[in-house]
């Protein structure tokens, strides 16, 4: 009886949820493979799949730009770098290095305890366990359409502002895409398009300074990595002299 009621209340499968579970199983499953396998190259491959699935999760949360960035920089750049390192050091002796059983037990104990705490925390707040975004957006759209219909019945003409609002609600209800790549670009040069600048709270909302710091940081890293990679040749030259 209760199952019937539930089916009547929510008759359709939520495909967003299904896609979330499929992607999350990929991400978590390959993360387990990363942790359990001893072969360093298989570990790197499992990391690729796990990271790519995570980028799928970012897409599902509406963060398109960050998801593509994750694919491009993380999966396409950082992990290629990692695999490069793996292949440079991939001698037979180092490809599979077994972990001691005591290490495993200790690691799993600490990890299990941490995970149980984090999981409890994640499901602690009831409002976070489900989302009413779609229902709210649908309801808002339906209410607005009813309002427009009522206005129409009263003989009022629908204005352009009302049409724009209708369009916004349609987009929010249909795919809810937060189209944020332009706003992210603006925020990185210090302009926040999503938050109106209030007079009592001047500045500090943009990300120009962190952006500059990160770019200098990357430059320093570039120079440093090149220096570290060259250091050996210097020491050998010194030794031979």
């Amino acid at each position: 009886m209760s199952e019937l009621l539930l089916a009547a209340a929510q008759p359709t499968i939520n495909w967003h949820t299904v896609m979330f579970y499929v992607t999350a199983i990929f991400a978590c499953g390959f993360a387990v493979v990363v942790t359990t396998t001893n072969n360093i190259v298989r570990m790197a491959f499992a990391l690729i799949v796990s990271l790519a699935a995570t980028s799928g999760l970012l897409f599902l949360a509406g963060a398109y730009f960050v998801g593509a960035m994750q694919l491009m920089i993380y999966v396409g750049g950082t992990v290629v770098l990692l695999i490069f390192g793996v292949m440079l050091t991939a001698q037979k002796a180092f490809i599979t290095m077994r972990t001691r059983a005591s290490d495993w037990i200790l690691g799993l104990l600490v990890g299990g305890a941490l995970f149980s705490i984090l999981l409890q925390l994640a499901f602690l707040i009831p409002q976070w366990q489900s989302s009413d975004y779609q229902a709210a957006a649908d309801a808002e759209l339906a209410a607005y359409v009813e309002k427009l219909k009522a206005d129409k019945a009263d003989g009022k003409v629908i204005t352009q502002e009302q049409r724009d609002e209708l369009e916004r609600l349609e987009i929010a209800a249909d795919d809810g895409m937060p189209q944020r790549s332009g706003e992210i670009g603006l925020a990185l040069v210090g302009v926040r398009a999503d938050k109106a600048q209030r007079p009592d709270e001047p500045g500090l909302a943009g990300y120009l300074l962190p952006f500059e710091i990160v770019s200098i940081h990357l430059l320093v890293v570039l120079v440093g990595a090149a220096y570290l990679a060259r250091a050996r040749r210097h020491s050998h030259a010194g030794a031979s002299q």
């Binding site: 949820t17 299904v18 991400a27 999760l57 984090l118 925390l121 994640a122 499901f123 489900s130 779609q134």
Partner: peptide, 13 residues
């Protein structure tokens, strides 16, 4: 599968 996922699911993953 019938219910929309929430923030908790993302936090769990």
């Amino acid at each position: 599968l019938y219910e929309p996922i929430g923030l908790s699911h993302y936090l769990a993953v």
